[in-house]
Write a protein that binds this DNA or RNA. Structure first.
Lengths: 329, 329
DNA sequence: ATGAAAGCGCTAACAT
DNA sequence: ATGTTAGCGCTTTCAT
């Protein structure tokens, strides 16, 4: 494989000049440039990122930390990140932690070892202390889930308000007994979404029933089914469910159907995220739309700016209630 | 940031010795090893992959080429690749081409420029000529979709046989008018799956109706809906549909429901891939299971072996028919 | 406008 | 068992 030396020799110039041509510097005469370009072509030369990266002390790789690639919520965000990354000559390393601290540490090591220039953390289960320490020396952005007091810039939505909006929608439809399928309240977003739920009930003079609040370990389909099973067994059964993820809601949907009940007539359902699949179910799912793609693009821009040494501010994006069949009789 | 020189000075040894400790070589005395380890700790030293990679002429990155991250089929395969990669100290660069040749070329450049050590190509729309040329100098494995004559090792399933199995299942249930929702026959797997469909019909004395064969641009939900719309309009409507992806099948399901018909009584449906969602729909989807995770692990092993310079052979994995509600009255 | 040369951080061949 | 040193391929400063 040809290297820059070979090209220089072939073109009869110095490596410095070849490097200048490679990097599009305008201090090279047209004649020389052509000589170099010919040599490059003739030798089938491809500049090595390995040499360049060492020299520049950068990897041009962004690390994205997600709990699981199986959660479709992340896919759209990743698309956004990816497009910005590519346009700025970065590449992304997609890292699934499976909420496993060991895995997490392997990935953190990548940035410690300069294999990645920065991190976009989307893992709610991330070790905040480690993240904070890492942030002292490395570029880090929190996306979607964040630790408030970490001092690490984040981009997210107003979870409390979004949740409030969802529950208010159900209340306006006449529902008074509304279940909440939430994830573990060790996560900030879970606490925020519960606050919105509680606020909506309170504002409309509805009492809160602790039995109506189900906590799940994960945000998946099976957990939604399980949660709905519990709800089905309640003596005073609710007439509506708000689940904090579409996958949970879809699991609930399935379980409601399995019990021979009808959505939304017997039980209305609202999800969260507006993943693609929320429109493929029968009935289609009312849900809170997050601007996932946009969130990804902004997160990427934030990270790249931070890598450049600029100061970046946290951002809160808008959400939107998308009303579909699962709440429309 | 400390480098290997600093550590050497701090420990009072040479950089060579530090490197030996770093790489776990047993030619270092216990006393020296401890001195070095202390120095590493004291300086908070982290070895730079940038230096190591240049020196070793490797990036320890595997490039995975997929058309779109939105197709859940790939997710499970990626999981498999990822786990093997991690265990062998590789990382994966997930590259979506969106079947866009420009994108594809950006990614191919990464391996040309030594940013990646090899490629697992899963993109049916890949430019085979480019791939072949690249394979002359780089490690490449084809996964799932492949070009027969390329000489590039592949891992896949027997698409013709799998398709035959699916259609035979429908025939055994008594269906005689079976539609095929296939993707563009420019893809090998599409041609293979059509062959299986044709063979099943022939073997059971059923005539083939060209009207029953619908081609779609992509394998998604919307395309499934569109295809089903066309099928619904046929004068002599089929009683069963075999779609070559679960997403297509789920789209078909939705459209059938929208027409007030019942699955499977009015129309039986079979999908392909056994993605997670195929079990979340109502009714659940009969489908052909591909061993996606296993396919990923083997593809990764094949690629890593190829990077090491070993010869690797192509592999065909088993498939399985999973019978669920969409074909069971 | 171009070249010479240093050096990014590491590994390994060779020497001791 | 340990040290010296060359060199992986590139960019950039300093000279000219």
């Amino acid at each position: 494989m040809a290297n820059i030396q070979h090209v220089a020799r072939q073109a009869g110039v110095s490596v410095a000049t070849v490097s200048r041509v490679l990097n599009g510097q305008d201090t090279v005469s047209a004649k020389t440039r052509i000589k170099v370009e010919d040599a490059i072509k003739k030798l089938n030369y491809e500049p090595s990122m390995l040499g360049r990266n060492l020299r520049n002390s950068e990897s041009r790789i962004l690390l994205i930390l997600i709990p699981s690639i199986k959660n479709p919520f992340y896919l759209e965000v990743i698309k956004g990140i990816e497009n910005i990354a590519i346009s700025q000559n970065y590449n992304i390393l997609l890292c699934e932690t499976d909420s496993n601290p060991e895995r997490e540490n392997i990935y953190f090591d990548l940035v410690r070892k300069k294999m990645a220039d920065g991190i976009i953390s989307m893992d709610p289960a991330v070790n905040v202390e480690t993240l904070k320490k890492l942030a002292e020396n490395h570029a880090i952005i929190q996306c979607s889930e964040y630790a408030e007091d970490s001092g690490i810039p984040y981009i997210t939505i107003d979870n409390e308000e979004a949740s409030y909006l969802a529950v208010k929608h159900l209340i306006k439809l006449g529902h008074e007994k509304i279940a909440l399928v939430n994830s573990d309240e060790k996560y900030l977003y879970a606490r925020q979404r519960k606050l919105g739920y509680v606020r909506a009930l309170k504002e409309h003079g509805l009492s809160m029933n602790e039995q109506y609040i189900i906590h799940t370990e994960e945000l998946g389909f099976e957990q939604g089914q399980q949660a709905m099973k519990k709800i089905m067994q309640l003596a005073d059964r609710p007439t509506a469910v708000f689940a904090v993820s579409d996958l949970l809601a879809i699991g609930a949907l399935k379980e409601i159907n399995a019990n021979g009940l009808h959505v939304p007539n017997d039980m209305a359902v609202v999800g969260f995220d507006k993943i693609d699949f929320s429109n493929m179910t029968n009935p289609t799912l009312t849900t809170i739309a997050q601007p996932m793609y946009k969130m990804g693009t902004i997160a990427a821009k934030m990270l790249i700016n931070q890598i450049k040494g600029e100061h970046v501010d946290s951002i809160i994006l808008d959400h939107e209630l998308v009303i579909r069949e699962s709440t429309l009789g």
